[in-house]
Design a protein around this nucleic acid. Structure first.
Length: 210
DNA sequence: CGGAAGATCCACT
DNA sequence: GTGGATCTTCCGA
């Protein structure tokens, strides 16, 4: 158990689903100029890449927006959605080519609990009242807002200065639950795949609860 | 070159 | 529970 020991690139060079499960309980560290923010990941989703209709890399799609999905495992993919929100993924997978990620697999961070820097996260979220469960980082866009993550961080390595993933307090396998991913109803067969993972019963998990 | 939809959140009912 | 906000990206014409 370590807040500071950084997860190496090899951590992300495994099956995407396995990485998504193993990220539960890990610490995401955001270094701001004046302060360090730390959260513990409690919910993730795996996106398998080219063979996954719900993935931004479906069918090998390779546009400027999704270019970071093809960086080596361990890099950030941050995208803008619904005209006002950002969401963050980490590139993962085993299908490598030319030092990159051939399949475009990644893990979306959906929810986290605060470990350090709550006051700044309250301010980043624009909350005027004490946060209730899920207010700070109980959803992929809330998480980004709270941590000050936007497209500036698209493509950065997650073992670098601005952003790091550390060992943290990993979830025990028996406390992990799985279910279908959120907001991907258009994806046909893939919409039913149980690639959403969470720490069972955790109050910060986004809705609908698993 | 236009239109439609989106890995969401919030306020309001 | 529902709809509005708000805008980038992509595909089809």
């Amino acid at each position: 158990m370590s807040r500071t020991r950084i997860l190496p690139p090899s951590f992300f060079t495994r099956d995407v689903e396995e990485v998504a499960r193993d990220l539960l309980g890990r610490y995401l560290v955001r270094e701001l100029p004046e302060e360090r923010l730390v959260v513990r990941v409690v919910e993730t989703e795996a996106y398998l890449g080219a063979r996954d209709r719900a993935s931004h890399a479906w069918n090998g799609r390779r546009t400027e927006r999704v270019a970071s999905l093809y960086l080596p495992p361990g890099h950030a993919y941050v995208y803008f959605i619904y005209g006002m929100h950002f969401c963050m993924n980490v590139v993962a997978g085993t299908e490598l080519v030319e030092g990159g990620n051939a399949a475009g697999g990644a893990v979306l961070f959906r929810a986290a609990e605060v470990v350090e820097g709550e006051q700044t996260m309250v301010e980043n979220r624009g909350l005027r009242r004490p946060p209730r469960a899920g207010d700070l980082a109980g959803g992929p866009a809330k998480l980004c807002k709270a941590l000050g993550i936007d497209r500036e961080l698209d493509g950065v390595p997650l073992d670098g200065e601005a952003l790091r993933l550390t060992v943290g307090q990993p979830a025990r396998p028996e406390e992990i639950v799985a279910g279908p991913r959120i907001g991907v109803g258009y994806a046909g067969e893939a919409a039913t795949w149980p690639l959403r993972f969470a720490i069972q019963g955790h109050p910060e998990v986004s809705r609908p609860r698993l």
